[in-house]
Amino acid sequence: MKPFAYRRATDARSAVATVAADPDAAFLAGGTNLVDHLKLGVACPSLLVDVSDLAADLVEHLPDGGLRIGAGTRNSDLAAHPVVRAHYPLLSEALLSGASGQLRNAATTAGNLLQRTRCGYFRDATAPCNKREPGSGCPAVAGHNRHHAILGASPDCVATHPSDLAAAMVALDATAVVLGPDGERRVPIGGLYRLPGDDPTRDTVLAHGELITAVELPAPFGGRARYRKVRDRASFAFALVSVAAAVRMHDGVVEDLRLVFGGLAHRPWRAAHAEDALRGSAPTEVALRAAADAELLDARTLSGNGFKVPLARNTLVSVLRELTDGAAEPEDDA
């Protein structure tokens, strides 16, 4: 770790001004991602501006029936919040499927959303990585890529975004409130993340120095929702595939739905093709499979992640089956 200065911010505007003015400065909140990266030599800031004291941990109702979540709200507090549990259970499920109790107690809402994409080569400062060192190459393409992207990847980067919360936030149509040196702007979480393209160094559309101060949720979507995470351990592991799904049924037909994949791409992957295929349809097993296949038509697999295609399809079908009242549930025979 190279030496750095530490400053504790007392107000958001000056924190933003400080970081925006110094290309080597970074915001520090819960630290669970950044301190890890400091130790790995992946992040090397010369100044840390600690935004923990900005009293941004309020969860408040909005006049339109939505909810405003302070950026500093800890993951565990947000997951346990009675309003979240009652009206946005998808959010609670997603948060609780991530990390460990200790990490959720430290990690903040904005910090979770802004954690870096996950890739072992990115984390290995002795390996090439286009995200860490532009132009150095991407060893994951021909290397260990079990966890890597099958959608929206580029030859330069095949990393996936690990945030469960982000997938749920996209499904909930949440919006980030972002403070920058020139004032505040609102960024839909669905548009917050980038695909790697030829510049994998940036995970999001935020400019250096921009700070998420809150996340706003619209009024609840209604219907039934589920966050299903499939991983190599039963707990405390990143998703191989996850599905954030919300479905409103009417008269045996899918009235509306939101489907987002985690673990498949550089950003949470809104499964718009699958949504379109199912909206207004009866959720038969055949229809569910066809919808999943439509979404995965453009999947491009690597040497070690081909299983993600059937896994994503099956997981999506499984979740939708459950949310649409088990239209085609296989029967138990024991």
Binding site: G120, D124, S235
Partner: peptide
Amino acid sequence: ANPDLGEYHIAANA
């Protein structure tokens, strides 16, 4: 390629 306890899994409590 996976030299840490986040990627080299050992059985967790669950």
